[in-house]
Design a protein around this nucleic acid. Structure first.
Lengths: 330, 330
DNA sequence: ATGAAAGCGCTAACAC
DNA sequence: GTGTTAGCGCTTTCAT
């Protein structure tokens, strides 16, 4: 065909509003240009930025994410994954919290592209992207110890989640680095990463009547629960006890005191997960299941200060503009 | 075919792991079992609950929502809508803020199912679901007046948005109902529904040096901006000025003072929009474009109290558990 | 280089 | 009722 004719055809096509039918294309190519995103609950403030990160890399490539919520229900998850596969998604990004997941592992073993966010499973068939939890806990412990704290309590997240487990282990190790003995009277376990569990845990800790001057909350929601209980019992933060969180959710800078916490780059987590998935989708041969840890930051705000009894004072007074300390992850 | 044979076939199918290919089905039926959801930004706390509401009604029907973010960019929106249509979505739920949208109106006029959330366009071709903004403003004004306020300022949202316009009009009317003269020195316009614009507006208002004892913020984010400026200038809330918000975003109950605001049932907005869309998709003939307003609630927390000068005192002291006042919408 | 045609997996229409 | 077939719109292979 002469190029001039070609131009005229293209022109006519545009004028008549022709658009390719991706359905027909999919049928022929058995590619769908869509990927499945499986999360517990979009309403959890962690996930919107992750979703946007995913979308940000997928969109320019012509992929569209299909989002499903599982509400942490194992059965629902299986059903949703099946529905996604039926729609011929080319890969899956999974952000649910289960520690092991035979269904997903089987999928991955069959060569179906899957990447996990914010967790790792026991077997390492599945590639992962997450914030560097160990570095985050270290940042928090170092900071607190630097402020003069020695009795640092820990609100452990659910041990059925990878995040819960890894943060607890990091806490033990970090104490050890500072030659502080691990005292199990200072750690309390929670069932879920939610505010009420943070409150329950804090009450339990307080009721043990063992002294402590600082508290590392399992995440920001737990910290919210701490604040509730402190208000209940007339405990002042940071004067009586310092608190740090995890995640740096929106608006935790608006609390009183503003929450000192570990910032996790959720948007980047989403981007990286999407990139990784695309790489796997495009790969001819099997790609080894690498796992990437993104650097986290300590965001210093008002909820931690030197303990009343401390000699040296390095505390950040409430209301001071946030400073940031960074670690670069492995 | 004998039913026994049929059973054997079904059995074999299951054993072989047969699943229908929805792509092929779509190609044949030109139905996709998917609908498009167009929002400015998932990261805006308004939208996750709306999304879940949509998902909640769509999922049992076998529909899947395809979500796109426009970042309020007109061009991007057009592109995204085109992409969605190319994917053969059977309908569109649109939550962007533009006051008129010829593209969408054309679509709707052609009989393509579209429903708008949280806004209405000038022409009424498009069906809508939103919270009852007028009732919400009335609730706020009535409450403030009941507390003894007469000089009630208003942070008007962008007048390029339906929400911004309708709330301003409602404010004027509500004042009139209370025989309070409308004073344009007490209203300031903002460019966007974001915190910094709330701050800018509040500064502008304060700099006018006209006295006021209460301030109705355009939405919760604006209220956050107010609080920032109050902190800057040593103004106490609610002692010096009362503030109310709009939306009842997550965590505004954690602010100091906890924000008194109008609760909008976003989850229900999503559900209702999805129901409406499905109804239109299934309709043989044209369905008239009704618009439904969902009831809102005044959530009384700590950011509004009686003015210092007031005779009667009906103020809610900070920290008191929230009470709710409801209106049923039209 | 250009064009023709087969076929992806399904559904609906039709003939039996 | 039961079975057969055309064709949805695209891509890709194959013949020209």
């Amino acid at each position: 065909m002469r190029s001039e004719t070609a131009a005229r055809v293209l022109d006519a096509a545009k004028r008549l509003g022709y658009v390719v039918n991706p359905i027909a294309r999919s049928l022929k190519t058995s590619r769908s240009s869509s990927i499945g995103v499986v999360i517990p609950d979009l309403t959890n403030a962690l996930f919107p930025p992750i979703m946007r990160g995913i979308d940000n890399v997928l969109e320019p490539l012509g992929y569209i994410p299909l989002l499903v919520n599982t509400d942490n229900d194992k059965e629902r998850e299986a059903k949703q994954v099946a529905a996604l596969r039926a729609r011929q998604v080319e890969g899956l990004i999974v952000g649910t919290a289960l520690l092991s997941d035979p269904g997903l592992e089987r999928l991955a073993a069959e060569g179906f592209p899957v990447v996990l966010i914010n967790r790792r499973t026991e077997s390492s068939i599945l590639p992962t992207v997450a914030g560097d939890n160990v570095a985050g806990v270290n940042l928090a412990v170092d900071y607190l110890v630097g402020l003069g704290h020695r009795r640092i309590a820990f609100l452990a997240g659910p041990q059925t989640t990878w995040t819960g487990q890894v943060r607890l282990r990091a806490y033990r190790n970090a104490l050890q680095d500072h030659k502080i003995a691990y005292d199990e009277a200072l750690v309390v376990f929670t069932e879920q990463f939610i505010e009420t569990e943070g409150a329950r845990g804090t009450r339990e800790l307080l009721d043990r009547n063992v002294p402590f001057t600082a508290l590392i909350a399992g995440n920001d929601l737990h910290a919210l629960g701490c604040f509730d209980v402190f208000a209940e019992r007339g405990i002042r933060c940071p004067e009586d006890v310092s608190v740090t969180g995890f995640n740096d959710m929106p608006f935790v800078d608006k609390l009183s005191p503003a929450l000192t916490t570990i910032h996790i780059p959720q948007y980047e987590v989403g981007r990286e997960a999407a990139r990784m998935l695309i790489e796997r989708i495009n790969a001819k041969a099997d790609v080894p299941a690498k796992s990437v840890l993104l650097p986290v930051e300590l965001v210093i705000r008002g909820s931690a200060a030197a303990p009343a009894s401390a000699d040296r004072n390095g505390g950040a007074p409430a209301g001071r503009p946030a400073r940031r300390a960074t670690t670069t992850a492995v």
